[in-house]
Nucleic acid binder design. Structure first.
Length: 264
DNA sequence: ATGGTAGCAATGCTA
């Protein structure tokens, strides 16, 4: 089974790219972030026509996550236990959706952007990751062999080699010690980064800013990951980042990350 | 020199 994650930066403006990506790489399950639409606005038809069904949650024009699958969608859950709200709580809920697809529990996660190290959103981001760590530990406590994929835009670059310039990000979000500790907290709960060994760095990124010609200058960040439970990680036989998807007119600022699993 | 681009929605906010 082939699973993938992609921050599409608006699914309505990129649905053709999304379907083409699924077909180009024969993807079974895709976790989407930043769909930037409400549930009633989600473009289901192009996915249905390609043989996929969709579970989506979105309450405003900024957040919104989805799981797209051609191997079934069961037990859809919006949000995880303890997930903190921010302002309008339904807006915060639109950052996480879990669904069981072909026996694998796939979470599409959009970790909050901290905005700046001093911003209250930074506290929210750290609290959000701490709650995810606790929820994940709980799931593994219930079933240590569960195949769980925590896929999405983590808005954290876990190591220095995950940014094009350590100096550039000094004093900014994504690389701070607190954010890296929060990310490692989820890893410590039993969820390993299953992509890195198949996509070694440095210089291997999943996001490039739209401005300043960041992509052609190869000024990016690795912030999109699949963190797998032990039961998921032992099934991983490969992974790649689809840099081609970042190219051309109408690209998202993120590239998809694809993970191949052996049969369960 | 706090720029630049993109999307949604509305003349600003978010990333």
């Amino acid at each position: 089974m082939r699973i993938a994650t992609w921050n599409c930066n608006s699914i309505r403006s990129r649905v053709d790219r999304a379907v083409a990506f699924l077909e180009r790489h024969d993807v079974d399950v895709l976790a989407l972030q930043e769909t930037k639409c409400r549930d009633d606005q989600f473009p289901h038809l192009p996915f249905q026509a390609a043989g996929y069904e969709v579970a989506h949650v979105g309450h405003n024009q900024w957040n919104g996550v989805a799981v797209v699958s051609r191997v079934g969608i069961e037990d859809v859950q919006v949000g995880f236990p303890g997930q903190p709200g921010w302002g309008n709580p339904v807006a915060a809920e639109a950052r996480a959706l879990g669904a069981t697809c072909g026996g694998v529990r796939v979470w599409s996660l959009y970790v909050p952007n901290g905005r700046s190290l001093e911003d209250p959103h930074m506290v929210y981001k750290l609290d959000w990751l701490a709650a995810l760590r606790e929820a994940g530990a709980g799931w593994l406590g219930q079933d240590p062999d569960a195949a769980i994929a925590l896929m999405g835009d983590w808005n954290v670059a876990p190591t220095d080699e995950d940014v094009w310039s350590v100096d550039y990000y000094e004093g900014k979000t994504h690389t701070s010690a607190q954010e890296r500790a929060a990310f490692e907290g989820v890893v410590g709960a039993g969820f390993a980064d299953v992509t890195r060994e198949h996509t070694p760095g440095p210089g291997t990124y999943t996001y490039w800013d739209y401005t300043q010609l960041a992509f052609p200058k190869r000024r990016g960040m690795r912030i999109d990951f699949c963190l797998g439970s032990p039961g998921l990680a032992r099934r991983v036989e490969g992974a790649f980042i689809d840099r081609e998807e970042r190219k051309g007119k109408g690209a998202s600022d993120h590239a998809p990350v694809v993970v191949d699993l052996t049969a369960g």
